[in-house]
Design a protein around this nucleic acid. Structure first.
Length: 219
DNA sequence: GACCAGGCACATC
DNA sequence: GATGTGCATGGT
Protein backbone atom coordinates (compact mmCIF):
# COMPACT_ATOMS: atom_id res chain seq x y z
CA UNK A 1 0.00 0.00 0.00
CA UNK A 2 1.42 3.32 -1.03
CA UNK A 3 1.78 5.70 1.92
CA UNK A 4 3.73 8.67 0.60
CA UNK A 5 3.12 10.61 3.80
CA UNK A 6 5.61 8.34 5.57
CA UNK A 7 8.53 9.63 3.55
CA UNK A 8 7.17 13.18 3.59
CA UNK A 9 6.97 13.14 7.37
CA UNK A 10 10.53 11.92 7.57
CA UNK A 11 11.69 14.78 5.42
CA UNK A 12 9.77 17.28 7.56
CA UNK A 13 11.23 15.90 10.75
CA UNK A 14 14.71 15.85 9.34
CA UNK A 15 14.37 19.44 8.18
CA UNK A 16 13.08 20.46 11.61
CA UNK A 17 15.59 18.63 13.77
CA UNK A 18 18.54 17.61 11.62
CA UNK A 19 20.54 14.42 12.09
CA UNK A 20 20.23 12.80 15.53
CA UNK A 21 23.49 10.81 15.48
CA UNK A 22 21.93 7.69 16.95
CA UNK A 23 22.50 5.37 18.71
CA UNK A 24 24.16 7.12 21.65
CA UNK A 25 27.00 4.82 22.68
CA UNK A 26 30.72 4.41 22.21
CA UNK A 27 30.78 0.84 20.93
CA UNK A 28 28.57 -1.88 19.45
CA UNK A 29 28.56 -3.58 22.84
CA UNK A 30 27.36 -0.45 24.60
CA UNK A 31 24.60 -0.08 22.00
CA UNK A 32 23.57 -3.67 22.54
CA UNK A 33 23.24 -3.50 26.30
CA UNK A 34 21.55 -0.12 25.95
CA UNK A 35 18.92 -1.77 23.79
CA UNK A 36 18.17 -4.23 26.58
CA UNK A 37 18.29 -1.67 29.37
CA UNK A 38 15.91 0.73 27.65
CA UNK A 39 13.10 -1.79 27.44
CA UNK A 40 10.03 0.01 28.76
CA UNK A 41 12.37 2.50 30.40
CA UNK A 42 13.29 6.13 29.79
CA UNK A 43 16.72 6.75 28.33
CA UNK A 44 17.77 9.06 31.16
CA UNK A 45 17.51 6.11 33.53
CA UNK A 46 19.48 3.94 31.14
CA UNK A 47 22.25 6.54 31.06
CA UNK A 48 22.56 6.27 34.84
CA UNK A 49 22.87 2.50 34.60
CA UNK A 50 25.50 2.67 31.87
CA UNK A 51 27.44 5.30 33.81
CA UNK A 52 27.44 3.00 36.84
CA UNK A 53 28.67 0.10 34.71
CA UNK A 54 31.46 2.25 33.31
CA UNK A 55 32.40 3.34 36.80
CA UNK A 56 32.90 -0.28 37.80
CA UNK A 57 35.22 -1.12 34.91
CA UNK A 58 35.66 -1.07 31.15
CA UNK A 59 32.42 -1.66 29.29
CA UNK A 60 33.13 -5.00 27.67
CA UNK A 61 31.40 -8.40 27.56
CA UNK A 62 34.26 -9.98 29.50
CA UNK A 63 34.00 -7.49 32.34
CA UNK A 64 30.25 -7.87 32.53
CA UNK A 65 30.53 -11.65 32.49
CA UNK A 66 32.92 -11.45 35.45
CA UNK A 67 30.56 -9.34 37.55
CA UNK A 68 28.46 -11.07 40.18
CA UNK A 69 24.69 -10.87 39.92
CA UNK A 70 24.63 -8.54 42.91
CA UNK A 71 27.17 -6.21 41.30
CA UNK A 72 25.32 -6.16 38.03
CA UNK A 73 21.94 -5.63 39.70
CA UNK A 74 23.27 -2.75 41.73
CA UNK A 75 24.81 -1.04 38.72
CA UNK A 76 21.73 -1.25 36.53
CA UNK A 77 19.21 -0.58 39.28
CA UNK A 78 18.41 2.97 38.07
CA UNK A 79 17.05 1.57 34.82
CA UNK A 80 14.43 -0.50 36.63
CA UNK A 81 13.49 -4.18 36.28
CA UNK A 82 17.02 -4.84 37.49
CA UNK A 83 16.64 -8.52 38.35
CA UNK A 84 14.92 -9.22 35.07
CA UNK A 85 17.43 -7.20 33.07
CA UNK A 86 20.36 -8.88 34.82
CA UNK A 87 19.09 -12.21 33.49
CA UNK A 88 18.62 -10.72 30.04
CA UNK A 89 22.08 -9.17 30.01
CA UNK A 90 23.53 -12.53 31.05
CA UNK A 91 21.86 -14.23 28.10
CA UNK A 92 22.90 -11.49 25.71
CA UNK A 93 26.49 -11.56 26.97
CA UNK A 94 26.71 -15.32 26.53
CA UNK A 95 25.39 -15.05 22.99
CA UNK A 96 27.78 -12.21 22.16
CA UNK A 97 30.80 -14.03 23.51
CA UNK A 98 29.97 -17.23 21.68
CA UNK A 99 29.46 -15.39 18.41
CA UNK A 100 32.37 -13.00 18.54
CA UNK A 101 35.29 -12.50 16.26
CA UNK A 102 37.61 -9.55 16.76
CA UNK A 103 35.42 -8.36 19.62
CA UNK A 104 32.39 -8.01 17.40
CA UNK A 105 29.60 -10.54 16.86
CA UNK A 106 29.90 -12.21 13.52
CA UNK A 107 27.03 -12.41 11.18
CA UNK A 108 28.83 -12.82 7.89
CA UNK A 109 27.90 -16.07 6.25
CA UNK A 110 24.39 -15.90 7.57
CA UNK A 111 21.69 -13.95 5.89
CA UNK A 112 19.84 -11.19 7.67
CA UNK A 113 16.69 -13.22 8.52
CA UNK A 114 18.85 -15.96 10.07
CA UNK A 115 20.81 -13.43 12.07
CA UNK A 116 17.57 -11.88 13.28
CA UNK A 117 16.21 -15.28 14.32
CA UNK A 118 19.40 -15.88 16.31
CA UNK A 119 18.85 -12.68 18.23
CA UNK A 120 15.17 -13.41 18.83
CA UNK A 121 16.09 -16.79 20.28
CA UNK A 122 17.90 -15.05 23.16
CA UNK A 123 15.76 -14.75 26.25
CA UNK A 124 14.80 -11.12 26.68
CA UNK A 125 15.38 -10.10 23.07
CA UNK A 126 12.08 -9.41 21.33
CA UNK A 127 11.37 -7.81 17.95
CA UNK A 128 12.11 -4.21 18.87
CA UNK A 129 15.29 -4.97 20.78
CA UNK A 130 16.53 -7.30 18.04
CA UNK A 131 15.86 -4.73 15.34
CA UNK A 132 17.51 -1.96 17.36
CA UNK A 133 20.62 -4.12 17.59
CA UNK A 134 20.54 -5.03 13.89
CA UNK A 135 20.15 -1.42 12.83
CA UNK A 136 22.22 0.46 15.37
CA UNK A 137 24.95 -2.09 16.09
CA UNK A 138 25.32 -3.56 12.63
CA UNK A 139 23.92 -0.93 10.32
CA UNK A 140 21.60 -3.45 8.72
CA UNK A 141 18.48 -2.27 6.87
CA UNK A 142 15.79 -3.02 9.46
CA UNK A 143 13.17 -0.47 10.53
CA UNK A 144 12.52 -0.34 14.28
CA UNK A 145 8.92 -0.13 15.47
CA UNK A 146 8.35 1.26 18.94
CA UNK A 147 5.43 2.61 20.93
CA UNK A 148 5.87 6.11 19.46
CA UNK A 149 5.90 4.77 15.92
CA UNK A 150 2.65 2.93 16.56
CA UNK A 151 0.95 6.07 17.80
CA UNK A 152 2.29 8.05 14.91
CA UNK A 153 0.99 5.49 12.42
CA UNK A 154 -2.39 5.32 14.10
CA UNK A 155 -3.05 8.94 14.90
CA UNK A 156 -1.23 10.88 12.28
CA UNK A 157 -0.89 8.60 9.30
CA UNK A 158 -4.40 7.25 9.79
CA UNK A 159 -3.32 3.66 9.41
CA UNK A 160 -5.59 2.53 12.21
CA UNK A 161 -4.45 0.36 15.04
CA UNK A 162 -1.88 -2.16 13.86
CA UNK A 163 -0.92 -4.54 16.63
CA UNK A 164 1.25 -6.77 14.49
CA UNK A 165 4.86 -5.62 14.74
CA UNK A 166 5.99 -7.03 11.42
CA UNK A 167 2.97 -5.75 9.53
CA UNK A 168 3.63 -2.18 10.62
CA UNK A 169 7.35 -2.61 10.02
CA UNK A 170 6.63 -3.78 6.48
CA UNK A 171 4.48 -0.72 5.80
CA UNK A 172 7.34 1.58 6.76
CA UNK A 173 9.91 -0.41 4.83
CA UNK A 174 7.69 -0.59 1.74
CA UNK A 175 7.38 3.18 1.69
CA UNK A 176 10.96 4.20 2.42
CA UNK A 177 14.18 3.67 0.49
CA UNK A 178 16.00 0.55 1.69
CA UNK A 179 18.64 2.52 3.52
CA UNK A 180 19.86 1.90 7.07
CA UNK A 181 20.81 5.56 7.36
CA UNK A 182 17.20 6.60 6.79
CA UNK A 183 15.79 3.93 9.11
CA UNK A 184 18.29 5.05 11.73
CA UNK A 185 17.37 8.72 11.46
CA UNK A 186 13.63 8.19 11.17
CA UNK A 187 13.31 6.20 14.37
CA UNK A 188 15.57 8.66 16.18
CA UNK A 189 13.59 11.62 14.87
CA UNK A 190 10.29 10.13 16.00
CA UNK A 191 11.68 9.67 19.50
CA UNK A 192 13.14 13.18 19.39
CA UNK A 193 9.79 14.65 18.38
CA UNK A 194 8.06 12.77 21.16
CA UNK A 195 10.55 13.95 23.77
CA UNK A 196 10.73 17.50 22.52
CA UNK A 197 7.31 18.46 23.74
CA UNK A 198 5.28 21.23 22.18
CA UNK A 199 6.19 23.68 24.93
CA UNK A 200 2.66 23.75 26.23
CA UNK A 201 2.19 23.10 29.91
CA UNK A 202 1.46 19.43 30.42
CA UNK A 203 2.50 18.46 26.94
CA UNK A 204 3.88 14.96 26.83
CA UNK A 205 4.67 12.40 24.18
CA UNK A 206 0.98 11.74 23.66
CA UNK A 207 0.35 15.39 23.01
CA UNK A 208 3.22 15.77 20.58
CA UNK A 209 2.28 12.75 18.54
CA UNK A 210 -1.39 13.65 18.50
CA UNK A 211 -0.52 17.01 17.03
CA UNK A 212 2.36 15.85 14.90
CA UNK A 213 3.70 17.35 12.69
CA UNK A 214 2.30 20.75 13.57
CA UNK A 215 3.96 20.67 16.95
CA UNK A 216 7.20 19.56 15.39
CA UNK A 217 7.27 22.24 12.77
CA UNK A 218 6.30 24.95 15.23
CA UNK A 219 9.12 24.19 17.59
C1' DG B 1 -0.77 9.78 43.53
C1' DA B 2 -1.44 8.42 38.83
C1' DC B 3 0.81 7.89 34.71
C1' DC B 4 4.50 7.16 31.59
C1' DA B 5 9.07 5.50 29.91
C1' DG B 6 12.91 3.86 23.02
C1' DG B 7 9.37 -4.36 25.90
C1' DC B 8 9.35 -9.02 26.86
C1' DA B 9 8.08 -13.59 28.72
C1' DC B 10 4.84 -16.26 30.63
C1' DA B 11 0.17 -17.75 32.40
C1' DT B 12 -4.40 -18.26 31.51
C1' DC B 13 -8.57 -18.47 29.07
C1' DG C 1 -4.74 -16.68 19.14
C1' DA C 2 -5.95 -13.01 22.18
C1' DT C 3 -5.62 -10.93 26.52
C1' DG C 4 -3.66 -10.01 31.15
C1' DT C 5 0.14 -9.57 34.33
C1' DG C 6 4.80 -9.14 36.52
C1' DC C 7 8.91 -6.82 36.23
C1' DA C 8 10.93 -1.68 39.26
C1' DT C 9 13.05 2.83 39.06
C1' DG C 10 12.61 7.79 38.33
C1' DG C 11 10.50 11.94 36.26
C1' DT C 12 6.29 14.75 35.49
Amino acid sequence: MRQPQLLAAYEQLHAAYGPQHWWPGDSPWEIGIGAVLTQNTSWTNVEKAIAALKASGPLTPAVMAAMTDAELETAIMPSGFFRLKTRRLRAFTAWWQSNTAADRPVWNGRNLPEFRRDLLAINGIGPETADSILLYCFNLPVFVIDAYTRRLAERHFGLGRIDDYHHLQQIFMDNLPTDPAIYNEYHALIVRAAKEGCRKSGCNAECVLKNFPETVLRS
